[in-house]
Simulated scan of single mutants.
Amino acid sequence: MPSRVPEAEQAWLRENYAHGTIYDTLDAFEAEFGWRPSKRTLYVRAHKLGLRKLRQDPEFRGRRAETTIRWSCEPEMEEWMLEHDGGRPHDDVAAAFHERFGIWLTRGQINIFRARNGLQTKDGCGGRPARPIGYERRTKGGILVKVAERATVPMSKDNWRFKHHIAYEEAWGPVPDGYVVYAVDGDSCNCDPENLVAIPRRTMGAVNQLRGEGATWESREEFLAVAAERSLAVAINDAESRIPRKCAVCGAEFAETAEQRRYGGRTATCPACIAAGRGARGDRGDKAPTVCAVCGRTFPRSQKNQRRCPECIARSPKRTAARQREEERRGRE
């Protein structure tokens, strides 16, 4: 603490700083010494003296975080918050709530209440003013635009929309159900209508796979042709998945469920066997004979990555090849 700070003020801070909010301390300081420092000045002085508010103490914060408040189960508290919150600073709301109910709210609990009731966009919430309608911000998925003052569904962000979605609808009309807006050049921030197409959601995965393999297209028409070919391939896959097949476990005929068709592969086990915990091993790849990594005998593999013969596996089923080889070597010694 610099020597220019009077000893009386230092002593007063040591005695009174820990209690109440920073605003309570400022008011009390002004009443005691006749002048009012800024919050920053008071914080700096307290820090240099090694002081902190009780509500900032790790032990106190731990106890406060253990207090679970489910707003849906506390109608009286929720009603009080709706009446008294008003977008005030978190510390003021927490202090008023403590005075009424004897519980210190965390910043997260206040934010959850505001989000649950669609109040998270009020001026002052989160320490910054609400963004105006039309405000844009860049994200990983493209440019988000604020289209409404508040969300229509609490705890959602449906008052924000991607700019390339808006641009597509203005140029080409509404996006059909089950479709997504796709950027031909891969840049969702490029909102040129000629760069935007709507394709089925399932087709998008097949198109992304082509792009990952290095495929490119020069124009919107060329991309639409590729998307049509991929849509046809997806439709053929769906049709083949509906053909009844024989279960590899019990031998009964079955057709894939809609849930199984989502993943594109061919299921070899019927739903009844899956429900009973039985599964087909299927084709595990190259099963050419190989040399056992433990005993050195040649054996036919039952799966691609098998390194031990059946006899060695039977002796130590829970060991790796290296571990079993080392244990058996030590046993011989």
Rank of each mutant, 00 (worst) to 15 (best):
M1Y: 06
P6T: 10
R14I: 02
N16I: 00
G20I: 06
I22A: 06
Y23R: 09
D27H: 09
E32Q: 12
R36Y: 05
S38W: 05
K39F: 02
L49C: 05
L49E: 13
R52E: 13
R61L: 14
A65E: 14
M81H: 04
L82N: 09
V93A: 12
F101D: 08
G102S: 07
I103W: 05
L105K: 13
I112W: 11
F113S: 07
R114Y: 02
R114E: 11
G118Y: 00
L119H: 02
L119D: 00
G126H: 11
P132A: 15
G134F: 06
Y135C: 10
Y135N: 09
T139D: 08
K140N: 08
G141M: 08
V145G: 07
A148S: 11
T152A: 15
R161I: 05
F162A: 09
K163Q: 14
K163F: 01
H165G: 02
G173Q: 02
P174L: 08
V175P: 03
G178H: 08
G178E: 07
Y182M: 13
D185R: 06
D187R: 11
D187Y: 04
S188N: 12
C191P: 00
D192T: 00
A198I: 04
V207K: 01
G214T: 05
T216Q: 12
W217E: 13
L224F: 02
V226W: 10
E229V: 10
S231P: 00
A233W: 02
V234F: 00
A235V: 04
E240M: 02
C247H: 15
A248N: 08
G251L: 11
A252Y: 08
A258L: 10
Q260T: 05
G264V: 06
T269L: 12
P271D: 07
A276S: 15
D286H: 00
K287I: 13
P289Q: 09
C292R: 02
C292P: 04
C292F: 04
G296V: 07
T298C: 01
F299V: 06
R301M: 05
Q303P: 00
N305A: 11
E311S: 12
K318Q: 15
A322W: 06
E328W: 10
E333V: 11
